[in-house]
Design a binder for these strands. Structure first.
Lengths: 339, 339
DNA sequence: TTGAAAGCGCTAACAC
DNA sequence: GTGTTAGCGCTTTCAA
């Protein structure tokens, strides 16, 4: 028997019908203990493993959570994934992870394929296809949880970081430390999280009665290179125009900025203070260790699973907004008052 | 029609049989252009997307590459994944990624489930269940590519980094720079790659006629914390016993070591030289930038896909061993000769 | 407690 | 070119 053994093979050997085997394997109560154990033993001997495709076809569902992420090579995604893994595994769900490489079209295609496999539900991380979902969502019969992008609809729920608050927190901390001229190094231009962090930044400025100067906004995309570029940019500015502190969209670009500063002989935090966002592992071991706004990434993943399971169970689900704390380390200098 | 439309629905609307629809959607040549287009238009209007579960069941295969990884939160895995994504997507394959969280038992379960979905083939990254595969592999009807762990069997192929060479390269470089007392900070004890890198380390020592001192071997597990611990350990050693250089199993632990050194006031490379392994992005921006042995991770991913596709196509496949180069940066000091 | 029968959505012979 | 038929491996009524 070179083929995979099927339920029929077991039935033949055990001298029972396929349906009995199915029940035995499913631990159905409507079966005698003796036959159940006999069948399970035979299954084990045959190294039987069920065809999930067949099972999904007949039941119209499979114990799979589809996960769509723009990339798997991003430490922020990786951290969310970790929470996802733990939580879903605990509840007996497998994950089917598809990465779209940041391509909105591919992202939508992935959703289609996940739905084609009868996934029980979907978790979409940092969607890059904000518009594309509108028509899709209605057709999708399964619940969808969006992590860090906001969507509305039936069976659609959100789990996200309070980015506006985070941006406020970072900026407020800088102001608190005596900084007056504060820059913001941005993230992906069309991203919601970028916009929200920028909004928090502006609110903190306003609340402190500090002027907002558009020249303090530097474009970026969240990459290491964007951070390096920002530092070079900063060096070109005239002394009196230069921010004394920069709040960066994320840790990756903050780390890039740190590295370039070191190379160019700019002392952090003495010449320039930096705050990041995310609190990725590397921030604890950078030089200097980076002050950053924590993003509770693993919790984001766990909550996404929790929301999905609740939706699946028909329980009421509300959107979840997580706030992270400021992790003060050594990349921010306290300014002396000199008024 | 609240349910997902099926091929039958399309057939009814178009006034043809389901098989005609199937052919039209599959772009079969045995169909008239007119009906094909009409059917495809109807499918589009209905927002039809096929049940992949059904398709997998009947064809006994699906255009899916199963990927098993110990974790998705590891930058080395992330890099391999990137190569995997690119290459598989180019060839029209989806990936079904399952992470085992380093648990051998779970790893094997993931393989079973992937096979239950009729994946076309499997790619297993850095297996933690070296023994467990023996019985499984024979039953598996699909080709399996192991990345960075060595397995033999029918339809089983390997793609890996030449770890022995890499270990040799790192150590040789240190010797070349005049170091005589060189330590090795190890990785996961049972891992093959750790053993191979250690072997390369010893060979380089031998070839240079340098004595091997077991006291220079420090235990580790590849984590940041292991690196910190190693540095503290190093500080406790008497001056004349201390290595002047340490080759670290991977960049992560090397980076941890760097961070701890900075905190403890140990100057790198002046007091101690460090070489890492992997060349993860962070090594370029650490302080000092880390000298390391490149692991061609993305290439590993691409090659794994290439091997799998070749096996699927019935072409001959040979194991692939990739050598990375030494990336000399600033964490190694050239020792003065004083004989 | 068990078996027979039907069918999930799709593809693949085989007819016509 | 197109329809008919059968069946992938499993679960699930319905009967017995």
């Amino acid at each position: 028997m070179s083929q995979r053994p099927s339920i029929k093979d077991i039935a033949r050997i055990a001298g029972v019908s396929p349906s009995t085997v199915s029940r035995a394997l499913a631990d159905s109560p409507r079966i005698s203990l003796a036959t159940r154990e006999r069948i399970q033993r035979i299954a084990r001997e045959l190294d039987y493993s069920p065809s999930l495709a067949a099972r999904a076809l007949v039941t119209g569902a499979s114990p799979i959570i589809g996960v769509v992420a723009p990339s798997l090579a991003d430490p922020y995604i990786a951290a969310v994934m970790k929470g996802l893994e733990e939580a879903s595994h605990q509840h007996g769900y497998q994950r089917l992870v598809a990465s779209s490489q940041g391509d909105p079209e591919q992202e939508l295609a992935m959703v289609q394929m996940l739905s084609g496999h009868n996934a029980a539900g979907l978790i979409v991380l940092s969607s890059r296809a904000p518009e594309g979902y509108a028509p899709l969502l209605a057709r999708l019969s399964m619940p969808v949880i969006f992590v860090n992008s906001l969507h509305v609809g039936e069976r659609v729920y959100n789990v996200m970081t309070d980015n506006e608050y985070g941006g406020w927190l970072a900026t407020h901390h800088l102001i608190d430390q005596g900084h007056v001229r504060i820059g913001y190094l941005g993230g992906p231009a069309r991203g919601r999280s970028h916009a929200a962090r920028a909004a928090g930044y502006r609110r903190a400025l306003e609340e402190a009665g500090l002027p907002f100067d558009p020249a303090c906004l530097m474009p970026g995309d969240g990459s290491i290179e964007a951070g390096r570029e920002a530092l070079r940019e900063w060096l070109h500015q005239p002394d009196d125009k230069r921010p004394t502190a920069i709040f960066c969209y994320n840790d990756l670009s903050a780390l890039g900025l740190l590295a370039e500063a070191y190379q160019q002989g700019v002392a952090i935090p003495d010449d320039l203070s930096i705050v990041g966002f995310d609190n990725i592992p590397m921030t604890a071991i950078s030089i200097p260790p980076l002050t950053t706004v924590e993003q509770r990434t693993e919790e984001l993943g766990r909550q996404a699973v929790a929301s999905l399971l609740a939706a699946l169970a028909g329980k009421p689900v509300t959107d979840i907004i997580l706030r992270g704390e400021l992790i003060a380390r050594a990349s921010v200098k306290r300014m002396e008052d000199h008024d």
